[in-house]
Design a protein around this nucleic acid. Structure first.
Lengths: 345, 345
DNA sequence: ATGAAAGCGCTAACAG
DNA sequence: CTGTTAGCGCTTTCAT
């Protein structure tokens, strides 16, 4: 593996000149530049990134920390982030916390030690003070999918409270009165926000909030299945259920159908996320959509801009994208369904 | 940020000693070791990875190169790999090629330049000669999900030809005669293997292979949908369809149902992969399962073992895990369905 | 068991 | 426009 010294000597120049064609090509005369480049090609030379990083104190690598690598919604984030990172010549370190607070903290520690250029924390389980070290070391940080904890931290988020409110209000408008809720893991702030949206919608619709209608799931298909089974034990059972994500909604639909109920004739189901699969379910799932992929792109752009900016304390950005109701077939009401389907989306 | 020199001077020892407690603790007297460790803690010192890597020529980072970050099956690989990498103190660089041969080559080039410690190539689009550079630089490499191209390259794979054979034979045993095939992107070797399995099963079942029954999809839900629509135009239409993955199978089911067909009464569908969603479909999808997650774990272990081994040319491993038929409800035959469902899985 | 010193390969300040 | 040179922070001989 040739190094810069070898290139220099073969080209009959100093290492500084070679380094210059690598980093400031404009400061080298076109002739020597071409010559040196030819030699680089010939020797198949590529600069040693470690030495480079040691000097520059940058790794050209950013990290995405996510709770669950197999959740398709989270992977949409990764797709967006990877896209931008690759475009801009950065590498993407993927950190899967498995919703484990300790693993998340470990990872952050490790990322700081590694002198990562920037970090995107998606749906973090951590508190503001846990970011202190990141901020103290001036490592650019973007919080994804999180309500603003602090205006001084970059965040790209969608209002999950509002989304839940939308979903439940839709159910109420449809005429349902006993609306169950399968919530996500309440360790996550966005799930607590959804719960808020659920109760607010109930209240503002003149309904009462009942603990027995609220079950906490674990964000996956199976817990949705189990929760629905539990809800069916109530007498009378709920006439509609709002699940905090599509995965749980799909599990619930599966359970409901297994128990012989028809959807939406006997019971309505509404989800959250609008994952691709949600539209393949029978019946196609009504859900709340929010622009994950786009938010992934945006997060990465904000992050990398900040990495590359000279400023020490750039103004934090708080980007906010709205959720939207996606009406399909899994909710309905005998007398009102046509009326609803005629309304614009 | 304190460096090793500062730790040394505060501890009243030389940098060499500090370095030793980091790398060869046994070569330092317990007393001084403890003392130095205390000072490290006090100063919150952690060694600079760039300097370290520059010396050691290792990055403690491995890469996973996959064709499609949103395919749940591929993400299962990532889950396994991340698990092991994290356990062993390695970072995981995620490279999404979007099934783009050029992007894949770019990535490999970049990984080599980055002096990555090891690479797992999942369902690569590349040819054996494309790995030359990786092997020349002695970078440990594991091919995932690939038939052996070369016994000297580590590979962890499942026999997709056999899996397809299993699936189609099942259909034939069920009594179907006109069996369509929605293949995956034929740029991928594993999809060509599935095609092989399909035709072999047909032939060994005494059926003929017909081009018009074979459609090439793009491994996603939508292309399955489109393919099924096309197949329905045939007269008579096929009585069963084998899709090369569950995503396409799900798309096909969607199309078939939309066109008013009942599954399995009017037409049977069988998929491949056994993704979680496949069991939520109505009817639950019969499919071929193979142990992706486990294969991810294994790949990472082989890779990291090789990274950490002293040997220059360790014996390559070729691990092989069998696919298995997962019989559910989406295939059936009026007269034989009960008979089939009584047979052991 | 410990220390001195020579790099690892590169960048950038400084000098010309 | 180009060359000289001093680090970046660490690991590792080679001495002692």
């Amino acid at each position: 593996m040739p190094n810069i010294r070898e290139v220099a000597s073969r080209a009959g120049v100093s290492v500084a000149t070679v380094s210059r064609v690598l980093n400031h090509p404009e400061r080298v005369s076109p002739k020597t530049k071409e010559h040196i480049e030819a030699i680089m090609k010939e020797l198949d030379f590529s600069p040693n990134v470690f030495a480079r990083s040691l000097n520059l104190k940058r790794s050209n690598t950013v990290a995405l920390v996510i709770p669950d690598i197999v959740n398709p919604q989270y992977m949409e984030i990764a797709r967006g982030v990877e896209q931008v990172a690759h475009e801009k010549g950065y590498n993407l370190l993927l950190c899967n916390t498995e919703k484990n607070r300790v693993k998340e903290q470990d990872y952050i520690r490790m990322l700081i030690d590694k002198k990562i250029d920037g970090i995107i924390l998606a749906f973090t389980l951590l508190q503001e003070q846990d970011f202190d070290e990141i901020r103290r070391k001036n490592i650019p940080l973007v919080l994804f999918g999180q309500n603003i904890l602090n205006e001084n931290i970059n965040s790209v988020y969608s209002d999950f409270r509002e989304g839940a409110f939308l979903a439940v209000s839709h159910l109420i408008n449809l005429g349902f009165r006993k609306i169950a809720y399968i919530g996500g893991d309440s360790d996550h702030l966005e799930n607590r926000d959804k719960t808020l949206g659920y109760t607010e919608a109930l209240l503002s619709g003149g309904l009462t909030v009942s603990k027995e209608l609220m079950i906490e799931g674990a964000d996956d298909v199976d817990s949705g299945y189990l929760a629905a089974l539990k809800l069916l034990k109530l007498t009378p059972p709920p006439d509609a259920v709002f699940a905090a994500n599509d995965l749980m909604a799909m599990g619930a639909v599966d359970a409901l159908k297994t128990e012989g109920l028809r959807i939406p004739e006997d019971i309505s189901v509404i989800g959250y996320d609008n994952i691709r699969m949600a539209s393949l379910l029978e019946p196609k799932l009504t859900t709340v959509s929010w622009p994950v992929y786009k938010m992934g792109l945006i997060s990465a752009r904000i992050l990398i801009d900040e990495v590359e900016s000279e400023e020490d304390n750039p103004q934090a950005q708080n980007i906010y994208l709205r959720p939207r109701l996606k009406i399909r077939k899994s909710c309905g009401h005998e007398t009102r369904v046509s009326e609803i389907f005629d309304q614009p989306t």
